[in-house]
Amino acid sequence: MRESDRLPGASGPATCGRGMASSTMTGEQPVTALQSVLLVERARLLRFLGARGAAEEAEDLLHELWQRVAAPPRQPIADPLSYLFRAAENMMRDVRRSQASRARRQFEWHEVAVAPEELPVGERALIARERLREVQAALAALGPRVELVFRRCRLEGVSQIVAARDIGVSLSSVEKDLQKAHRALAGLKAKFDAE
C-alpha cells in the first residue's frame, strides 16, 4: 500500500496557498517533519517549480506536494529538502508526460483514419535488434570506461556514486562519461527518428 492511500481523505484540511501556515495550525492533522521543511522552504520550492515550467500551476503543485508528505515517511529521510525538490521534479515530469500522451492520443486519433500498415512482428524485432547493435557499437566507440560506466549505471541500475567508487574514479568523471554516452545516443535517436 502506498503512503498516499493511507491519507485520511484526500480532501483533508491542509491547504497550501497563502493561508497554508494558519490553516495547518487549525487543522486536525499534525504537521509532519517534511511539511514543516516545506513551509520554511516554500519560496525556494516555488521558484524551482516556476523555473521548471509550472507557471501559474506552481502553487497547486506545491499544494499537491504538501498532501503527499502529510503521512510520515516509512523510512528515515537523510535530506528532507532534497527529498522535496526531487518530489517536485518528479511531479513536473509526470505533468509533462501526461501532456505528451494527451497530445499523442489526439494525434493518433487523426492517424486512425489512415490505418498505417503495421510491420510484421518478426520484422519489428529485427529492426529493434539491429538498432540495439548500433547502440552498442556507438557506446563501444567511446572507449571501455564510458561503456562500463553506462552499463553499470543505466543497465544494472547502480548509482553513479557507487559506480565511481567501484571503478575508482571521481563522481564528476562518471557524470561526464554518462554525458558522452547520452550525447552519442541522442545522435542515434535523431538518425532512427529520420529513418
Binding site: 525556494r44 523555473a51 532534497s82 525538490f85 553513479q160 556514486i161 554525458q179 541522442a186
Partner: peptide, 28 residues
C-alpha cells in the same frame, strides 16, 4: 546547450543530488 542539459539530467537523476538551487538558476 544540449550537452549542458544532458549533464543536468545525469546529475538530477542521482538520488544524492543536492544542487537544486544551482539547477534552478541555470533554468532561469
Amino acid at each position: 546547450l544540449m550537452d549542458t542539459a544532458r549533464l543536468w539530467v545525469v546529475r538530477a537523476s542521482e538520488p544524492t543530488f543536492t544542487l537544486w538551487d544551482d539547477f534552478t538558476a541555470w533554468l532561469e
